[in-house]
């Protein structure tokens, strides 16, 4: 049974780490690319922020 993989056999402990990592990566990327107010970052992402509905400036 230990060789079984995939969602059906994934225990909670095996899921917690990957889910936390994915959530943190998602929040981090969206926070920096969508909301970071550093000048260069803001200018580079300006059009995308407007087009995606993020508060821009």
């Amino acid at each position: 049974m230990t060789a079984l993989t995939g969602s059906s056999a994934a225990t909670l402990s095996a899921k917690v780490g990957p889910i936390l990592l994915a959530a943190l990566l998602g929040i981090g990327i969206v926070a920096i690319a969508g909301h970071g107010q550093a000048h260069v970052l803001h200018d580079a992402a300006h059009d995308v922020r407007h087009a995606t509905g993020f508060p821009c400036h």
């Binding site: 994915a22 959530a23 990566l25 929040i27 990327i29 969206v30 969508g34 580079a44 995308v48």
Partner: peptide
């Protein structure tokens, strides 16, 4: 930046 932001959305969605 679209690709970057949608990768971020992708991480949130798979979580």
């Amino acid at each position: 930046f679209n690709i970057l932001i949608y990768c971020g959305y992708g991480f949130l969605l798979v979580a």
